[in-house]
Design a protein around this nucleic acid. Sequence first.
DNA 1: AAATGAATGTGATCTATGTCACGGTTTCAA
DNA 2: TTGAAACCGTGACATAGATCACATTCATTT
Lengths: 193, 193
Amino acid sequence: MFDFLQQKVNETISISEEEFEYAKTLFLPKKLRKRRFLFEEGEPCIYTTFVEKGLLRSYTIDEKGSEHILQFAMQGWWSGDLYSFLTGEPSEYNIEALEDSELLLITKESWDQLLKEVPAFERYFRILIQNNLIATQRRLMGTFSATAEERYQKMLKEFPDVIQRVPLHMIASYLGVTRETLSRIRSQITSGS
Amino acid sequence: MFDFLQQKVNETISISEEEFEYAKTLFLPKKLRKRRFLFEEGEPCIYTTFVEKGLLRSYTIDEKGSEHILQFAMQGWWSGDLYSFLTGEPSEYNIEALEDSELLLITKESWDQLLKEVPAFERYFRILIQNNLIATQRRLMGTFSATAEERYQKMLKEFPDVIQRVPLHMIASYLGVTRETLSRIRSQITSGS
DNA sequence: AAATGAATGTGATCTATGTCACGGTTTCAA
DNA sequence: TTGAAACCGTGACATAGATCACATTCATTT
């Protein structure tokens, strides 16, 4: 059960067998079926999760009823709503499984504990968050300088798997356009090549 | 010279006097006059900087010649282009002083050293990056769900000082709109209230 | 103090994308 | 296996914001 976690962690930092044994005790395994929620809008995201298998998303719904997807998550660490996790404040995000998923959950308390007891994990999360920040900055700048089509093409290259596994209207809301617009972009691409 | 740095760091973590003395040796002080560049597009951002005084920005120029501002920086830590700093790759960003500024610079090597020798700094940067990620995610979601005017209003509340100190066309490019659009938004706001 | 360049405002268009509306598939749970 | 959702495509129209063009004011340098 923890093999994949151990492997992933060892890709970035090196920790002793003993330290990993300790880490294991802090996790709560959980299976989440497709279309079920880990957290719904309004509740605090009390866990950060390691996704072993499956696919999830975090999204909000605005006043007009439109969905806006912050992230898709698969194969690895993911804090559905980092702010809510850190502060315990209620989250504006819904965290939903898009496929039957297997997760390892850890509470804020255990996580604090882990970073304190095993400094290598402090480093590990610093690096994870760093990469996430870089990716988010890129995405942000993309929304300013690239057209909807360019963003879609970029996503096709970067996350072809997500695009295969997720309905079109979710891709659209991840890109920040309506499903109609993405539908048109897509038919235009296929006709033009 | 290092007082403000020490104060800032102590707001989030606690380090010994000795550790701080060590940290001090790693910094390179630098004054940068208004409209001068710390790094220009194409060069690697070999320093991450602590801003003691002044105001800077990181921005790119796209194929059409439009500027896009990633960040403004004042009073505190700032990695102009985090990706370039970490990898040593040439940056697409220009790092420019918008006011006469006083900086403390640190190279990637010294920074690695610092995080290794003083684990509290590992923690410190994890927290900084974390906060930056949260802010960037918010800004990203804002570009999806809010109109240009709403984003401007939000920025007025969050960074009134930046808006005072920076020309309008830069605010516009930070918000992801043209200067003309922001100009109209602004005149509409003042007339309407 | 002149002069050059930066910054702002504003009108007249243009365009990418949103909105609304409808019909046809596919998926999935009972 | 059937009915209800979810999903996708596409036309007609609306609109926020972009582009282009020009005039005015402000700042900075010599």
